[in-house]
Design a protein around this nucleic acid. Structure first.
Lengths: 208, 208
DNA sequence: GCTTGAATGAAACGAACGTATGAATCAAGC
DNA sequence: GCTTGATTCATACGTTCGTTTCATTCAAGC
């Protein structure tokens, strides 16, 4: 097992530290220190700290978005009107897959949270047209499955999906709540989230 | 209208800037600059930046927690087993009330998000025993209303409530999505959230 | 063997950070 | 009117930040 090149090691270290301490809470020196590289390597390989963050975000989000798109394609190939449950599974599932505790799964999950919640537009602004496009396609599919709910409320609910999946691994109650232990069992929380979100998405429209 | 004292002006400015740029993204100089005070005033009145953040968090969360507790008391005074819908309304409602666009409502909502999602324990650690206690009481009430769902999954769902309400005002899709405009109409998103969350909480237990 | 271009290393830049210091200001008490 | 205690001010300290510079290393091409 040859050690990966400096660029990859910086990406790995940045992914871990950005997830643990956020964008602003992570210094270039901490990243290069963990990666065993020189401070100047970030400037050389990525240009700046912000561009490094963008590269990390791209690497993490690409397989998730691809899986979301593939899942929707698979559903639509079978029937033009997939069920709400199937749509929730296809949309939210990839946000959990590859996120098991082994390797860097939980780390990646926290990273997504760190990106979504960071107040700096510099960090949130990375969301590319690919994410946007797949979400729009899911919105259309949800709209067909839930004809009574208008599109504005559906957008709200899809944001709810992102919120629940993002906060999942975030230990809001820290070590004091009994539910905390469950956040380690990634598979269980995945099934809980699907149950929770499928019921939420299926709710009848709010009476105007 | 006499100008409030320096201490209050610093709290106001800190509340706004912490909400907009997060804890690490806000400098003491920016806070005192907006408050029209001197840099040393933070050290004098609060001791440190972290203690200022704690004071801001306390001021924001106290009325919310009080309203949650009062709402649960009111429900339990009427019936020993309130419905799931009523519990969701009592728990999530205060997270929206007083959060209208006028004044600093949306600002306060974003602040809660900034606190919940900040990776620094220094920031998240402020959650006091009051928040913990009221959440435990709600858990017990939800457990009575949903006898089939075990307590670990209920904790997960209550975290989901916090996630949805917190991310509500967070414009994940920025200006590009049509649902964005709705985040301005606080009352509408409040009703949407209650619908969404009541359905989610009422879901049958995940089959083990 | 020498050259070339990519990659790394050590060091320093100016700026901004949180915090601390000591003098200046001010209202109230006697 | 002088004193006292609380507050505000200008200023500086030491540190850390992101970034840049420039010399050095190193493998491949001719």
């Amino acid at each position: 097992m040859a050690t990966p090149d400096t660029r990859t090691q910086i990406l790995d270290a940045a992914e871990q530290l950005f997830a643990e301490h956020g964008y602003r809470g992570t210094s270039i020196r901490a990243i290069t220190g963990l990666a065993g590289a020189n401070v100047a390597a970030v400037g050389y390989h990525f240009g700046s700290k912000a561009e490094l963050m963008a590269a990390v975000a791209r690497r993490v989000s690409e397989p998730v978005v691809a899986a979301q798109r593939a899942g929707l394609d698979r559903l639509l190939a079978r029937t033009p009107e997939p069920s709400v449950d199937a749509l929730v599974e296809a949309f939210a599932g990839p946000l959990f897959d590859g996120m098991s505790v082994d390797e860097g799964g939980a780390r990646r999950s926290r990273l997504i949270m760190a990106i979504l919640s960071d107040p700096a537009n510099e960090v949130r602004g990375w969301t590319g047209p690919a994410e946007e496009a797949v979400r729009t396609r899911y919105l259309a599919a949800f709209a067909r499955a839930l004809p009574g709910v208008d599109s504005a409320e559906l957008w709200f609910r899809m944001r709810g999906i992102l919120a629940v999946t993002a906060v999942d691994r975030l230990e809001v109650h820290q070590g004091s709540s009994p539910g905390c232990a469950s956040s380690v069992a990634g598979d269980e929380s995945r099934r809980w989230a699907i149950t929770f979100l499928a019921a939420a998405m299926s709710a009848p429209a709010t009476r105007g």
